[in-house]
Design a protein around this nucleic acid. Structure first.
Length: 873
RNA sequence: GCCCGGGUGGCGGAACGGUAGACGCUUCGGACUUAAAAUCCGAUUUCCGCAAGGAAGUGCCGGUUCGAAUCCGGCCCCGGGCACCA
């Protein structure tokens, strides 16, 4: 029942079914490709390289839904097309496997999250393999594998060494009822996701990465990237660069010195009528007069208990309280009351502002509420104001008024002059601020990469420092707790990976630390700072002066960490001495194409760019941007047009469709649904179209005996029309794949198949060329047809058909006749027709004559081969 | 509020400023069949017409052009992002 096919020394069975038995065909070819490592990258270094990457998935317990294979199919088509065009293609897959759901499952069941994670990975792997993607499975990686996260920890140590990692008290969500810290995604509307208990902000010691040090480069680097404009704009807005001045105001009250503010509008300085400090500002205490102490204290307490949500979304009305103190405007000596208000944020600029209510919406609103003066100092330069004062607040362009020597200047020039003049007196400087904040990098979780740091006393730190010179930051990282200052010491590289110890319970400790804090033998240790070796502190200290008392860091890394650099690991996934060899990095670089959801437009893509730039700075990678070309696939909605959700009952699993129609049909349908980037509803009946298309292709290629259809003959001469159509199809399919326009490529192939179907005889070469075009989309059936038509080797390895422009140039073209721009007929005409000949043919046409016959032609527009438009009076 | 993206048949969607609705789904009719399924052939924007054909038509209003779904201006609606960042 099976025939043997010879191929490169291997043998494979091909099914002998006369019908299109997609289940058998898909199973067989998947196993053939796997056994022969058909898609292993790096087999031929003489070929140009192409690296195409999917955003790797989090292996959730619910398995793959139909949205996953959308992007994966797109990259697979690209990968297969590039191989056919002679590229050495790297197309890998792996698992972003640390994550909250696995930990929550572990908390509930008491089983190790790794066990659950491995089950989920096995299920994802099975589902993905059933889709026939041409991944290089030898390069599969898993971020929870110690052989992988060893290098995640290593990169963290590079950041630490360069002073890009530090600790700080930062607020986290704390749920008193659950006695645990919650992640942002576990907090919904101020309540815990589990149980619905109220949560509050609590300050805890956190690791923070100094991404702001790269703000300028992260912004400027966007320029050269081939990314969706919307994504670049979102990143730019997130980084939020703004230029202005930092101005120091004098204070009436002696002692605290000056009050520094940041403004983008130094030109409005004469319009400043009051000052505002954020409630957390360091000078509030010193500037509050005794009479105002109670009111200010109350206000600060209330502000502190508000969540971010309450301070922004819910607080439409601005509130504040006067401190009792005054500042002095450096430009005119005006006396300015200093207020405290939570519409000023401590985290931006200096945490204090000069308020110019005439030219700022927020200050205007506040001034109106508290009856503070409003002084306009900018007037529109053009005639639009017409002598009338503009409506306040006026935030547009204009010229300065009521500004002493600066009056009459354009606002830009005025701002520049004021800044320079004040700078000369030492009370201002040009300044740039970013919205981007440093990256809160620690999580009070068990299921994450342990941070490879121990905490030691100052004395021990000083003793260890000389021996660890290159591994320490210039400024030691330290924090104070209960009056004791502790210093951060890194594990040495040879001690990596630092693995997760077994624990009794995966619940956080109850004090806000992770479950790791409950493992005394792991946390409290004697530590050899030269080797990273450790023994529990309950045991006697080993001999030698390199052994010191230490407490391990109990925070773990966030899920973003592993995905910040995985694209680099794919180039050299089994390397145990480096995260990737320089040779592998030189060969593959970063992905030439990166495809994934737009939901990662900011965070993942920004964090990865940050790490990449740091690695570039230490000479570890050859480029300073990781992803040159980026594409977002759109979301596939449920049948009902709603977002697919497990709970909504509208989620579609690929398994059932593969069972009923085959993965080739599914792949085609996913790509046929609409533009890759568009949001599209799933239509369960629509799969029939692509499925019928494949059935037709099968029947036109395979005859009743299961061999080649007799209509396909080696020596057959194709009709000129079929040849023309074939070459149009070769060109369109190739162009469309390059541009990721798969839906129109499939349409074109359907058009070709419809033509093929009508032909009585077709040359074998044409049939094979068509199969080759279809192969990236529907690889299993094409591999089978390729083999049954007796073509050599594999469809997956055959070169892409050559486009011959000569074949599509026709002697006759269809010329459309228009009268006054309206379609009034058409006919086949010789290709090189002159305008005079065209007009003669057109006026002879009865329909054209009916509209133009007895009227004067005032103009002729002739586009050869397309239209002839007669403009008549 | 601000910044993007998008509105085309019953549905998903095609259309370098040049025949609007390719391709597919759905539906209807026909062929094959004892019958059904599958398959094959044909029709499927609306209105008028027996037909040939004509008219209207790409969210709404206006403009540019020989010619606009496409370009420009003003609105309406839907989706996404940001949101006191001084």
């Amino acid at each position: 029942m099976e025939r043997m096919v010879h191929y490169g020394g291997f043998h494979t069975m091909v099914t002998d079914s006369k019908d299109y038995d997609f289940q058998e065909i898909e199973r067989r070819w998947q196993s053939f490709w796997e056994r022969n490592r058909t898609f292993a990258a790096g087999k031929d270094p003489s070929r140009p390289k192409f690296y195409v990457l999917d955003m790797f998935p989090y292996p959730s317990g619910s398995g793959l839904h139909i949205g996953h294979p959308e992007g994966y199919t797109a990259t697979d088509i690209i990968a297969r097309h590039r191989r056919a065009r002679g590229f050495d293609v790297l197309h890998p897959i792996g698992w972003d496997a640390f994550g909250l759901p696995a930990e929550q499952h572990a908390v509930k069941t008491g089983t190790h999250p790794a066990a659950n994670t491995q089950n989920n990975i096995a299920n994802f792997r099975r589902q993905i393999k059933a889709l026939g993607f041409s991944y290089d499975w030898d390069r599969e990686i898993d971020t929870t594998d110690p052989r992988y996260f060893r290098w995640t920890q290593w990169i963290f140590l590079q950041l630490f060494r360069r002073g890009l990692a530090y600790v700080d008290e930062r607020p986290v969500w704390w749920c008193p009822e659950l006695r645990t810290v919650l992640a942002n995604e576990e907090v919904i509307d101020g309540k815990s996701d589990v149980g619905g208990f109220p949560v509050e902000r609590r300050n805890l010691r956190q690791w923070v990465l100094r991404i702001t040090a790269y703000a300028d480069r992260l912004l400027s680097g966007l320029e050269g990237l081939d990314w969706p404009d919307s994504t670049k704009r979102m990143q730019a807005a997130w980084i939020g660069r703004s230029e202005g001045a930092e101005i120091t105001f004098g204070l009436e009250k002696p002692g605290p010195g000056g009050l520094r503010v940041f403004t983008t509008r130094p030109d409005t300085l004469f319009g400043c009528t009051y000052m505002v400090l954020a409630p957390e500002h360091g000078l509030v205490e010193a500037l509050t007069t005794p009479e105002m102490r109670v009111a200010v204290g109350d206000y600060r307490r209330r502000a502190a208990s508000k969540s971010d949500l309450e301070r922004t979304d819910l607080a439409k009305d601005k509130t504040g309280v006067f401190t009792g103190s005054f500042a002095v405007n450096p430009v005119n000596g005006a006396r300015l009351p200093i207020w405290v208000a939570d519409y000023v944020l401590m985290g931006y600029g200096t945490g204090a502002i000069m308020a110019v209510p005439a030219h700022d919406e927020r200050d205007f609103e506040f001034a109106a509420r508290y009856s503070l003066p409003v002084v306009p100092v900018i007037e529109p330069a053009d005639h639009s104001s017409n002598g009338q004062a503009p409506k306040l607040p006026y935030t547009g362009d204009g010229n300065l008024v009521h500004s002493d020597g600066y009056t009459g200047l354009d606002w830009r020039e005025g701002g520049r002059r004021i800044t320079t003049d004040l700078a000369a007196k030492g009370s201002a400087r040009h300044s740039v601020n970013f919205k981007l904040r440093d990256w809160l990098f620690s999580r009070q979780r068990y299921w994450g990469e342990p941070i490879p740091i121990v905490w030691v006393s100052e004395g021990d730190y000083r003793r260890a420092a000389p021996r660890l010179a290159g591994a320490l930051p210039e400024e030691p990282v330290s924090f104070e707790q209960d009056g004791v200052v502790r210093f951060a010491l890194p594990l040495c590289e040879s001690a990596l990976p630092l693995e997760l110890p077994p624990v009794q319970s995966y619940l956080p400790s109850g004090t806000g630390e992770s479950a790791l804090a409950n493992v005394p033998g792991w946390v409290d240790i004697w530590f050899d700072f030269t080797t990273g070796m450790a023994v529990p502190a309950t045991e006697p200290p080993p001999a030698g002066d390199t052994w010191i008392r230490a407490r391990r860091e109990t925070n773990t890394m966030p899920q973003w960490a592993g995905s910040c650099w995985y694209y680099l690991r794919f180039t050299d996934p089994r390397n145990s001495r480096q995260f990737a060899s320089p040779e592998a990095l030189a060969r593959w670089g970063g992905p030439d194409l990166y495809v994934g959801g737009a939901e990662h437009a900011v965070l993942h893509l920004l964090y990865a760019r940050f790490w990449h730039k740091v690695l570039f700075d230490i000479g570890a990678v050859p480029t300073d941007e990781p992803f040159r070309r980026l594409f977002h696939q759109g979301i596939i909605l449920g049948e009902d047009g709603e977002k697919m959700a497990k709970s909504g009952g509208n989620a579609v699993s690929p398994d059932a469709i593969i069972e009923s129609h085959g993965t080739d049909s599914l792949r085609l349908f996913l790509m046929f649904l609409g533009p890759l980037e568009a949001m599209k509803p799933w239509n369960p009946r629509g799969i029939e179209g692509p499925h019928r298309f494949l059935q037709k292709v099968w029947r036109d290629c395979i005859g009743d005996d299961g061999g080649a259809n007799p209509k396909i003959a080696g020596g057959a001469q194709d009709s000129a029309e079929l040849q023309k159509l074939l070459h149009e199809t070769i060109r369109k399919v190739g162009d469309d794949i390059e541009a990721l326009r798969f839906n129109t490529a499939i349409s074109q192939m359907m058009i070709f198949e419809n033509a093929l179907h009508k032909e009585a005889r077709v040359s074998r070469a044409t049939a094979l060329a068509f199969i080759q075009l279809l192969a990236p989309f529907a690889p299993h059936i094409c591999e089978e047809l390729w083999s049954r038509l007796g073509a050599p080797g594999l469809a997956s390895e055959a070169p892409w058909p050559r486009f011959d422009p000569a074949r599509i140039s026709a002697a006759e073209v269809r010329l459309v006749f228009q009268v006054n721009g309206k379609h009034r007929g058409d006919r086949l005409v010789p290709a090189g027709l002159t305008q005079e000949q065209a007009v003669a043919l057109a006026t002879a046409d009865p329909r054209v004559a009916a509209f133009a016959g007895n009227r004067t032609i005032v103009k002729v527009v002739y586009v050869p081969g397309r239209i002839l438009n007669l403009v008549v009076s």
